[in-house]
Write a protein that binds this DNA or RNA. Structure first.
Lengths: 184, 184
DNA sequence: AGAAATCTACCATTCGGTAAATATACTGTC
DNA sequence: GACAGTATATTTACCGAATGGTAGATTTCT
């Protein structure tokens, strides 16, 4: 599953095969089919685990006594880590690009991931707005969704540019949008 | 090339084959290989044309006597059109997702597309800032790059959600970020 | 007649997937 | 602790279909 995850993030669902995983592990294709009968079973299991682990990471951030500003920065940091680790993309944006290769169940999984991101951000944004750390005119949920869209796009463009500094710059600029001028 | 473009936008580079195009046209595979010897030749030609046509559309917008606000809205409209047309993605974000399937030449083409988007936006933003239509603290180019990242992510998430209203909502919110409060 | 385009008929390779044999690991019994 | 029985896992050896691609004959257009 680790290797499957990496391969989807790097090449996409249609860009790797059972043979690739088998070779990476040093095992035979059929052994993988024993655990994951079809490729979609595999990717679904990987997706489920990915989403759970990502949610745990968000929860872990929430559990720490951070400021709202720090929380958002740590959120962007999670997506930066993915990019930093061999310039991978978020599994879910990768799979969202290949959406038409998947059945409805998997599509719903993807939307659950994006929604969960937005809900987590909503809380942080709501708190931060009250504390004066953030300024935005729309609702916290609307701002949250905008950030999710932004971070996915930022990751995509940064990888394409071949420079993680591109991501950092984009995030810095979005943080400037979010925070009151006098706090910069 | 039309069909090739559509197929990449809908399924991705690794999600279609020469046979798919042949069937759609009602022609044989070999006939396509006559015009485009390899699949990468095909996609490169499609990409080149796509970029050129998109630049023409941007130029056409610039040529009209629009306000800067209208220009940005028409920009978002171009990406909306793609989404509206059978929920396709921008060719370049689709290919950027599958970046590792392509040689450096194609990767550079993709970055040229994104850069050109940013440069076009930069002009509009710069003008709009001076006219008071837009408010942002960073440079026009930085805001432009942020918008490019945002619009790509917005398209991806909207298609995943299966609701073009998702895109509209995201764009509306980003426009609120860009424009002074009193002008809303 | 000559050029351009399309055709038929292939090719080797890879794809996801399966059946059946074999090997490995665990478990209760004496 | 040795042993048999049983699940678990991995293997070999396939399968049919699809992949990108090619050679050469044939058709179509100018």
């Amino acid at each position: 599953m680790d290797i499957g995850l990496t391969l989807v993030q790097e090449r996409g669902y249609n860009g790797f095969s059972y043979a690739d995983i088998a070779e990476a592990i040093g095992i035979r294709k059929a052994s993988i089919h024993y655990h994951f009968p079809s490729k979609q079973d595999l990717v679904q299991a990987v997706l489920l685990r990915y989403r759970k682990e990502f949610m745990d990471k968000l929860q872990h951030i929430s559990d720490q006594p951070h400021s709202c500003l720090q929380n958002i920065q740590l959120f962007f940091g999670l997506y930066r880590d993915t990019l930093e680790n061999n310039t991978k993309l978020c599994l879910c944006s990768m799979m969202a690009a290949e959406l038409n290769s998947f059945p409805p169940e998997i599509r719903e999984e993807l939307n659950m991931f994006f929604d969960a991101n937005a809900v987590w951000l909503e809380h942080v944004l709501d708190q931060g707005k009250k504390s004066g750390e953030f300024t935005f005119s729309m609702s916290a949920m609307e701002q949250a969704k905008t950030i999710v869209a932004f971070v996915q796009g930022a990751q995509l463009l940064s990888r394409s540019s071949g420079d993680i500094g591109y991501y950092d710059s984009l995030v810095t600029n979005y943080m400037a949008i979010l925070t009151p001028v006098n706090l910069l």
